[in-house]
Computed example of a mutant assay.
Amino acid sequence: MESQKSNSSLKAIIVVLAILLVGSLAYMYKMSTDNEKIEKGHLSEKETLVKELEAAKESYDAAIAENTGLKGDLETERAKIVELLEKVKKADGTTASLAHYRTDYIKLKREHDQLIAQVKKLKEENGSLTTQRDSSRTALDESKRYIDTLATKNDNLSKTVEKAQKLSLVNLKAQSFKERSSGKLVETEKARRVDVIKISFTIAANEVATAGDKQYYVQVIDPKNNVIGEKKTESFGDSSLTYSFITNATYQNKNMEVSQTVKGEDFAKGLYTVNVFDKGVAVANSTFTLK
């Protein structure tokens, strides 16, 4: 009788151990499957970011090959893309590292889109001028007796086109700093530490634009929709503009870097908007965030 009880107990123990063993194997299989899915997800995200960076690099290569007036800026931004691409390729593929590199790429992508748009615009403008020049030459060839008249008209047309060209602003950036007692600026994105905002942009080279003194109104708007800085107002016809500061530049038809700072205190956390105006007309805008 006792032998039967012992056998029953032994069988019960074996059954329990078997159930536990099956449960453990199932749990280990699930954990292995979940980890594999996570790793594949990270790998896929990394591959996507690599492809996007390679596409941006190829876009810069094509633009540089056209030898535009923005070649220097294009080569500078391309170098940044190449540098980030190498970092991403060497990254371990964790969520934290990919998120950091994705943020860097978004900033570089904004610069890429602005520069490529400028390249396209300059190409179209040059094409338009070339078409006008060719048309004038055809007219001169067809009727030599009107050469003086046509030459005068062509000269007037060139002057009209030159005056009509609007300068383009690219690479509009905003950087936030903490100013130390020594006067040294230390870059930071923490709102509670910021007391200086530096605004910079490039006036793109344009051979048909009029050289000389240029004046731009810069407007920096905080997350509460308030204009920071001088907060002065200028009227342009029926409209008015409240600006943070005015920046002046002597333009010589070449790429020209312009920068100026805005001091303040108690900067709020959130998204800031930067607008640049040529008199009352908006010509560039960008955003930045303080944490």
Rank of each mutant, 00 (worst) to 15 (best):
A211Y: 05
M256A: 04
V276T: 06
A249R: 05
F277L: 08
L25W: 08
S8N: 13
Q165W: 03
Q132T: 13
I64G: 02
A249D: 14
S128N: 11
A26D: 09
K166D: 14
G93D: 07
L74R: 07
A284W: 03
E142Q: 14
L43Q: 10
L122Q: 11
G212W: 14
K263P: 02
T160F: 07
E36C: 02
E83W: 03
K269L: 07
V276P: 06
H112E: 07
K37G: 00
F288L: 09
T250L: 11
N35T: 13
Y146F: 11
V194N: 01
R102S: 09
K279V: 00
F267Q: 03
S32M: 09
E125D: 15
E179I: 04
K51R: 13
V119P: 00
E257T: 07
Y243H: 03
N226L: 05
Y251K: 06
E86I: 03
A26C: 07
A209Q: 04
N126A: 11
D134S: 03
I38C: 00
K279T: 09
N171W: 04
S244K: 11
S143Y: 06
A268D: 10
S3G: 01
R193H: 12
F277W: 03
D278V: 08
I19L: 13
I19E: 06
R102Q: 10
L70I: 05
S8Y: 09
E77I: 05
D61V: 10
K37H: 13
N225D: 13
S239A: 15
M31V: 13
Y146E: 07
K87L: 14
D278W: 05
A249W: 08
A204V: 08
L10G: 12
G212I: 14
T247M: 02
K214S: 12
N226S: 12
D104W: 08
Y27R: 02
Y217T: 05
T233G: 02
Q4I: 11
G93S: 10
D113S: 07
A63N: 01
K144R: 11
V258K: 05
D222N: 14
T94G: 08
T242F: 07
A151I: 05
L21S: 12
L169Y: 02
T149N: 11
K144P: 05
T94C: 11
S176V: 10
V196Q: 09
E125K: 12
D155M: 15
I203D: 03
D155I: 03
P223F: 04
L167Y: 05
V227H: 07
A117V: 01
N275T: 06
L108Y: 10
E39N: 03
K46D: 02
L167N: 15
K120R: 14
V161Y: 12
G229Y: 02
Q175L: 08
V276G: 07
G280L: 08
K232T: 02
E39T: 09
K159P: 00
V262Y: 03
K159M: 07
T138Y: 13
I106V: 11
Y60S: 02
E162A: 15
L129G: 00
K123E: 10
K87D: 15
